[in-house]
């Protein structure tokens, strides 16, 4: 696995809020075509890392390299255009939009025609619009939401909203997909379905960085992982080696060398 090229690299990335270092000099690597887990107790700085990668925050220090680009000071929409897409820990769908419209919005970068051509209703733009619609319907089906296209997204269950968010994130055909706790609030079967989907996406060439609290899912679905605590790197490697790491045991589970007591932390 270590011969696969690097897609994302964080070099001593730090983010301070006032005096607090939410992320304090984190370095880690995500390799192309892998499912990489980002783990750590609540408040460890995982969501902040995702916000830094997507440009919603800018690092206080350090640099983030993605696919040959330095993301330094780039605004979020330019970073998205490079091929990074994400979901949110607290689902953030657009209120007032149907499931289909949410995903269609996610297809914006791949719309294929200018805003003006779309406004003027030029034939090529109409065709592109229909293609984007068809693609959105396929993406909804892919996350198990076929037949919910016209439903106002905010009327759906939390789990369903999470799946629409994943479909929306896939609309831009990203190279890197960032999932912030995609299985939070889901039951076992639903979580397994998400894990399955993540594997399918990886096999179709996507790279995935996911924050996940369920250790079972991490060992089952992640190829590699990064463990953080207090904004710093604690361990890195295969899920098994991370979980067995005594430091991780101490920080994450409060006791050393007791791998059997591993519980999903949420």
């Amino acid at each position: 696995m270590h011969d696969t090229p690097t897609l994302l690299q964080l070099r001593a990335v730090a983010k301070h809020f006032g005096g607090v270092a939410a992320v304090g000099g984190l370095s880690t690597t995500v390799r192309k075509g892998t499912v990489h887990g980002l783990i750590g107790p609540n408040g460890a700085g995982k969501t902040t890392v995702i916000n830094l990668i997507t440009g919603l925050f800018h690092p206080t220090d350090g640099e983030i390299l993605f696919d040959g680009h330095n993301l330094e000071a780039k605004p979020p929409h330019e970073i998205a255009a490079l091929g990074i897409s994400r979901t949110y820990q607290n689902v953030r769908l657009f209120s007032g939009m149907s499931a289909l419209e949410q995903v269609l919005t996610g297809c914006f970068l791949k719309r294929g025609s200018s805003l003006f051509a779309s406004f003027a209703g030029l034939p090529a733009a109409r065709r592109n619009w229909e293609e984007a619609r068809a693609k959105s319907l396929l993406l909804l089906a892919r996350v198990g939401m076929a037949g919910k296209a016209d439903v106002l997204a905010e009327t759906l269950s939390y789990g369903e909203q999470r799946r629409i968010e994943i479909a929306r994130a896939l609309g831009s055909d990203p190279k890197l997909l960032l999932l912030d706790e995609p299985t939070a609030g889901m039951n076992h079967a639903e979580s397994q379905a998400i894990g399955q989907l993540v594997h399918e996406l990886r096999d179709s060439g996507l790279t995935i960085l996911m924050v996940e609290h369920n250790m079972g899912l991490v060992t089952e679905f992640c190829d590699s992982c990064t463990v953080m605590n207090f904004g710093k790197l604690l361990a890195e490697g295969t899920p098994r080696s991370c979980i067995d790491d005594p430091e991780v045991q101490a920080a994450y589970f409060g006791r050393k060398n007791d791998a059997k007591r591993i519980q999903p932390v949420g």
Binding site: G55, L56, P76, H77, A80, F94, G96, T105, F108, S172
Partner: peptide, 17 residues
């Protein structure tokens, strides 16, 4: 479509390009 997205949540819209 995108102006509705920007109105509802500009930062989410920005992460969609």
């Amino acid at each position: 479509l995108v102006s509705r997205a920007v109105r509802e949540d500009p930062s989410v819209a920005s992460t969609m390009g």
